Simulated scan of single mutants.
Amino acid sequence: MSENPVDPNQAVPPPPPPADAQPGGVPADQRQWAMFAHLSAIAGAILTSGVGGWGTFLGPLIIWLVKKDTMPFVDEQGKEALNFNITVALACVALVVLVVVTLGIGVLIAIPAWILIGIAWLVFTIIAAVKANDGVSYRYPFALRLVK
């Protein structure tokens, strides 16, 4: 007599997920465009005037405007990227105003603040891009919600 290799009391493992399953339920093209919305701020900073300049929110604005009606995840993440970069730009402008109003003495506060803002901006932008690529909604911690 041969033994039955399958034990009827042993639980059957669940089948593997389908090959086309997406993390977080977000399609790959939406995850990619959402990642581009975040990373376009870095590209804008490199190509234009740096952190806090108009180039940092131009990329997220264009991607959001083009994709917001057809891709819900890009709509959400594009607004996040746009709001965060507008917030950073406003903070940098406020520091310029501080320097002008104090006749240059405010530069003692502004330069360290610009460095900290720049580092935080880069770190948060990279985190947001990675999360978006994973299909996870990311909310920047210090962003004014101007675009709704």
Rank of each mutant, 00 (worst) to 15 (best):
D20C: 09
T48S: 11
P23G: 07
L146N: 08
G118C: 10
L61F: 13
L47M: 14
I115H: 04
A143P: 12
V51R: 00
A120N: 04
G25L: 12
D69S: 14
I46W: 06
V66I: 15
D20V: 08
T102G: 09
A120Y: 11
A45R: 07
V66K: 08
I126M: 08
P8D: 06
A94F: 09
P8I: 10
L98N: 07
A45P: 05
N9R: 11
R145K: 15
D29I: 08
A143E: 10
R139G: 00
V12R: 13
I111T: 09
T48C: 14
V147E: 01
G44K: 03
I117D: 01
A37C: 04
A81D: 03
L103W: 03
G59I: 03
A91F: 09
L108I: 15
G50K: 08
E3A: 13
A128K: 05
V107W: 00
A43Q: 05
P112A: 06
A94K: 05
P72H: 06
A120S: 11
P141F: 01
V66A: 10
K67E: 11
A21L: 14
V26Y: 06
V97M: 10
G24I: 13
L39G: 00
I111E: 02
A113R: 01
T70H: 07
V88K: 00
L65V: 09
V12M: 15
A81M: 07
T70F: 00
L47R: 07
P60N: 11
D7E: 02
G118V: 06
A110I: 03
A120M: 13
A94M: 06
G106I: 03
A132V: 05
Q30T: 06
S49P: 03
A89F: 07
V147M: 10
G104V: 06
E76S: 14
Q30E: 15
A37Y: 05
G24D: 11
W121R: 07
P15D: 07
P112W: 09
K131L: 11
K67R: 14
A19Y: 10
P5I: 04
N133A: 14
Q10K: 13
F124C: 06
F84P: 04
I119V: 15
I115Q: 00
G25D: 13
V123I: 15
D7H: 05
P60K: 08
V123D: 10
A110C: 08
W121K: 03
P13V: 11
V88T: 09
A41H: 02
V66F: 14
L58G: 02
A89C: 12
G78H: 04
F73W: 12
I105E: 03
A21R: 12
M1R: 12
A19D: 11
P14T: 10
R31D: 05
G118W: 07
K79W: 07
F36V: 15
I42Y: 00
A143I: 05
V100D: 12
F142I: 12
A21F: 12
A91H: 02
D20K: 08
S137K: 15
L61V: 05
M35N: 00
L116A: 15
R139N: 13
F57V: 00
K68A: 04
P8L: 07
Q10A: 14
Q22R: 12
I86V: 15
P15N: 10
V88M: 06
K131M: 13
V123K: 09
E76V: 12
